[in-house]
Structures are given as structure tokens and as C-alpha cells.
């Protein structure tokens, strides 16, 4: 039997977005409200299954009476608020955030980054050829996944997914401070010596492709990665009796990546090591 959770009925709040009246259930964020009203708000560090840390600041909007802009992803809607999503001030901050990010990070595998850079007329090259970049190469230290921190925007999603919000493995954390901050396991060592259980739930939430399947990383390097040629097959993991939902991404009759739907009310897109990576037997054709 499928049960649709109804929850406690919530009061509706009324406020305005871009001068238009809107009503959302109490507890909604401004991002929820803006999206419900059909506004296009870019987000990077926001994850549909995680509590936002509001680190990227690309979703900022203007709230009347607020000295600074506010991140739509974490600010809760309040009755009587006047929210503006596309003022010059908002566009300016989004443009600069994109310029700062693109000048310090490789956004080539970040979905929509190129589109936003065009939309907000960002010019990441303006900081000159000497603009500092963390300058990290990909870390390939195991067969299952790759950590390419040159593509990392420090959104904290992998840390939250690995830690108290989902996996409770606490294998990674942010270390260092400021521009030198990095995602690392203890003592910044290799994954194999860490508390990592290879569930890959960090890959599931990574918004930039900094964390990727080894298969994807190798195929990108070989120039054979082609998302348009991939199919997605929904199935159920057969490793144990829990029966998590899997989405198998297949290219040329090979499973190249495994994800899980985030709207599954039990697993919320999380899998274990077997579900995420244990699919080679399917392809054993001998």
C-alpha cells in the first residue's frame, strides 16, 4: 500500500514576490515560494534533500527592510514580506558571485553554469591571468570514485550528506580556512585510510561534478562520455531486502553511473556501497 504523507495542515502566509501577491504554507523558504511562483532562481549549494548552509550566495534576493540581500534557499517566508528577485542589486551580486566562482573553480561540469554566466553577463576573466586558483588536481586514489577539488565550490553538501544529515560516517570535513579551505578526510590523507564507506552519497549531492564515478571520470578523460547517448532505467536494487530504488545510467550497453531518485520517501536518494557501485555482475557476459 502506498501512503502519501499528508503532515500537519499548515497555515498559509501571504506576502509579495516582485509586487505580486503569493501564498505559501508556513515554514516554506523564499526559494520554495519563488519557484512556486515560477521565478527562475539559480542555486548551487542548495540540495533538495539537505538543510542548506547558504554558502554560494547565488540565490540571493532582496527583501524590503533588510540591510543586505538574503539567500532565498534558507530564509523562511514571513507574512507581509516584500521580496524582489530580479533587481539591479540582485543581478549584480549574482554576476559577481559567478565571476568569483568561475575565476577560481573549474565549472565545466556544473550543470547550467554556462547558461547563468551568459544570462548574468559575467566575465570571469576580468580578474586577470594571475587570479589565484586553488590549483588542485584530481585525486584518483580508489577504483570507485574521484575527488576533483579543482571543481569544488565548497558547498558543504558532501560533508552534510556524509555526516549527520544522512550517512553518519563523518569521513570528510572542511579543513583549513578562507581561500585555503578544502574538503578533506582526517589529516588530508587518502580515502582508503579514512572512515569512508564508499556509499557515494556525496557524489549524489555534488552540484559541480567535483565528485564523480570513476567510470564517468575515465570516460570524460577518454572523450567518450556522452550524456545524450545515455538512457536512464529505473529499477530496484536486488542486493538486500530493503529494495532501494535505483536509476541505472547506461551508455553503449554499459552501466556508467548509478543514482537514486531523491523523492523516494524512504531513501531520499541515498544508497549503500553495494547499491551505488555493486553492479559489475550485471555486466558479466561470460
Amino acid at each position: 500500500m502506498t501512503v502519501t504523507p499528508l503532515g500537519i495542515p499548515r497555515r498559509l502566509l501571504e506576502f509579495t514576490i516582485d509586487d505580486e501577491k503569493t501564498r505559501v504554507p508556513e515554514g516554506s523558504t523564499l526559494l520554495d515560494a519563488c519557484r512556486a511562483a515560477g521565478k527562475d532562481i539559480p542555486t548551487l549549494c542548495h540540495g533538495d534533500t539537505l538543510t542548506p548552509k547558504s554558502t554560494c550566495r547565488i540565490c540571493v534576493v532582496e527583501v524590503e527592510g533588510s540591510r543586505t540581500l538574503v539567500p532565498a534557499c534558507s530564509r523562511k517566508a514571513e507574512p507581509g514580506m516584500a521580496v524582489r528577485t530580479d533587481t539591479a542589486r540582485v543581478r549584480h551580486s549574482r554576476r559577481i558571485v559567478l565571476e568569483l566562482l568561475a575565476s577560481s573553480t573549474d565549472l565545466s561540469t556544473t550543470p547550467k553554469a554556462a547558461e547563468w554566466i551568459k544570462k548574468y553577463e559575467a566575465k570571469p576573466d576580468r580578474f586577470g591571468p594571475d587570479a589565484a586558483r586553488p590549483g588542485e588536481g584530481p585525486r584518483v586514489d580508489n577504483d570507485l570514485y574521484v575527488r576533483d577539488y579543482g571543481k569544488c565550490v565548497l558547498c558543504y553538501k558532501c560533508v552534510d550528506a556524509c555526516g549527520e544529515q544522512w550517512q553518519n560516517s563523518f569521513a570528510i570535513s572542511v579543513c583549513g580556512r578562507g581561500f585555503d579551505a578544502r574538503i578533506a578526510v582526517e589529516h588530508d590523507g587518502p580515502l582508503a585510510e579514512s572512515a569512508c564507506v564508499y556509499c557515494g552519497n556525496c557524489i549524489e549531492v555534488c552540484p559541480t561534478g567535483a565528485l564523480s564515478f570513476r567510470s564517468e571520470f575515465d570516460m570524460r578523460a577518454a572523450g567518450t562520455w556522452d550524456e545524450s547517448a545515455q538512457t536512464a532505467t529505473a529499477t530496484v536494487c536486488a542486493h538486500c531486502e530493503v529494495g532501494c530504488t535505483l536509476t541505472l545510467h547506461v551508455q553503449d550497453n554499459e552501466i556508467v553511473k548509478v543514482t537514486s531518485p531523491h523523492d523516494n520517501p524512504v531513501t531520499h536518494g541515498n544508497l549503500c556501497n553495494k547499491g551505488r557501485f555493486g553492479h559489475q555482475h550485471v555486466q558479466n557476459r561470460d
Partner: peptide, 25 residues
């Protein structure tokens, strides 16, 4: 400010670096 930025948010983490670079230039 570059040294004391905690690194949490992008405008400060990268902005303080770009500010220092521009003043150097």
C-alpha cells in the same frame, strides 16, 4: 580579511582574495 575569512561563503572567500590582488596590482 583574506587571512581571516572563514571560507564559508563565496563573496567573502574569493572576494577578499580578488580585493587583495587588485590592490597589489
Amino acid at each position: 580579511f583574506r587571512a581571516e575569512s572563514c571560507g564559508l561563503c563565496v563573496p567573502c572567500r574569493v572576494g577578499t582574495v580578488r580585493q587583495e590582488e587588485a590592490l597589489h596590482r
